[in-house]
Structure formats: C-alpha cells, structure tokens
Amino acid sequence: MEKTVNQRAWLLVLPVFLLVAFSAVIPLMTVVNYSVQDTFGNNKFFWAGLEWFSELLHSERLWSAFGRQIAFSAIILALEVPLGVFVALNMPKKGIWASVCLVLMALPLLIPWNVVGTIWQIFSRVDIGLLGHTLAAMGIDYNYTRDPLAAWTTLVVMDVWHWTSLIALLSYAGLQSIPQAYYQAAKIDQASRLDVFRFIELPKMQGVLMIAILIRFMDSFMIYTEPFVITGGGPGNSTTFLSIDLVKMALGQFDLGPAAAFSLMYFLVVMLVSWVFYTVMTNMEKADTFHG
C-alpha cells in the first residue's frame, strides 16, 4: 500500500546516511585507494593501476583459497539445509515441548563465534578434549593439527552444530504458517508422507529456506573466527579460507596493496552471489503474487 509522500522523511534518514558514509563508504574508499597503489615504506605511495588485481587473479594461492572456500560453503549447506529441514519437520508443533525444543535449538545461536571455536578446539584436542581423546582411545587416528581431513571434519561438524538450528528455526516458522486444511486435504487425497513434503511443505518453506540459504552462504563464505581459533588455517594451508588468507596477507605480511585488491574482489563476489539470490527470490515472489 502506498504511503503519503513526505519530503521530511529524508531528514530522518540523514543520520543513518551519515553513519553509513563514515562506517562503510569512507573505509571502503581507503581500501580502493590502497588497491591501486604500491609503497616501499615511509608512507610513500606509487600508482600501480590494476597491477595488484591482475597479479592476484593469476596467483595460485588465491585460487586455491577460493576453491577451499567454495568447497566449505557447499559442504556445510549440503549438510545443514537437509538436516535443518529434517529437524524442523520432526519438532513438536504445539504444547510445552514445542517451546522446550525452540529454546534448546536457539542455544547454539547465542554463543559467540570465538567461544564456539574455543569450545571445539578444546573438545577435539587429542590430549584433553572429550571428543579427541575418545576417538583416539577407540583407535581412530584423529588429530586436527596434523591431518587435513580431520581438520576439515572438525570445522564442518562444528559449523553444522552451530548453525543447523538457524535453518531449523526458520523452516519451523515456515511450517507453522501452513494451515491445517492443507494436511487434511492431503489426507483426503491419500497423499503419501513424501507427497505432503514435496507438494505442501517444501513449496511453503521455499521463501524462508531461500533466506536461510542466503544467510548461511554469506556467513560461511566469510568464515574467519572459528578456523582461526581451531586450526589457524592449518595444517599447512588446508583450512586457509579466503578471509584467513586475507588477514595473513594484510597483517602477517603487511602487503597492503594486494590485500586491498583482494578484499575488493572478495566483497564483489559476496555481493554478486547475494544479488543473484535476491533476484531469484524476488522473481519467485512475483510469480506468486501475479494475478493476486
């Protein structure tokens, strides 16, 4: 529904506008500035053009980090989405147990990232961690500081533990909005459980699931804290994701130019993917609301 056009509204938006300018646009501009210059110290800068960008695009280091990043996001989405939906489908719909479940599900979401990292770092340690020690005692060769597979497994399990709740809660909300009549109609049509899921629940969850996937994709694509705490990007470079690589480059090696170019490209990739998601989602909504 359309609202009255009121020019004074702009005045109210102005503070936010300034805030965003100072907190996002201006820092971004300094990054842009760095990305096209080179320095040999002493605060002297030289024009470098797009040199850093082309160097990075040809750097194997960046591409392998990018590959690992894509693999990580893909794996956790492939695990978390079906698992989250499965959990949501099996949560009680009403009564005291529904509330209990909701609270339990929300718990992991309330823990700060670095704490999650620390918990899993300790939990998985072979010497003192409950999980690591148990696995070792069972004769499984598990050590995330030595074995890339163990490191990946730990990170993926941790992420699934941390974030499946979010997908489950969003899906649950989607499921709750389905009127009872749909289930009754399905019973009358003699639809199987699978049909109910395919033709009623999934279509009705579509909207929230898209949002959940978008959020989880962006989050996992920018993951930093947890791998930093648990593996520090190791063993070797096996868990060095884009953000870890970026920090290494910018702070470890102090290569400001390439790091700035790196962050810009990173930013653009995340934006591009989000835009694609957004377009797909709004198009779907349009198809829904067309003809009322």
């Binding site: 009549a181 009754q184 109609a185 049509d189 639809a191 033709f199 999934l202």
Partner: peptide, 27 residues
C-alpha cells in the same frame, strides 16, 4: 470422502491439471 475448505487449498507447485489429477493418481 472429498472435502472443500474455507480457504482454497491447492498444491501451488502443480499445474491445475496435476492438482485435479492428484487424488486420482494416488488411488
């Protein structure tokens, strides 16, 4: 038995034809 509800209950992702055929197919 067949039942028609207060609010339209249709399978959104199916075509009209598939909607009408659904109960028959299941049987």
């Amino acid at each position: 038995i067949a039942q028609v509800f207060q609010f339209p209950v249709v399978y959104d992702t199916m075509t009209v034809r598939e909607n009408l055929a659904f109960a028959l197919r299941n049987r």
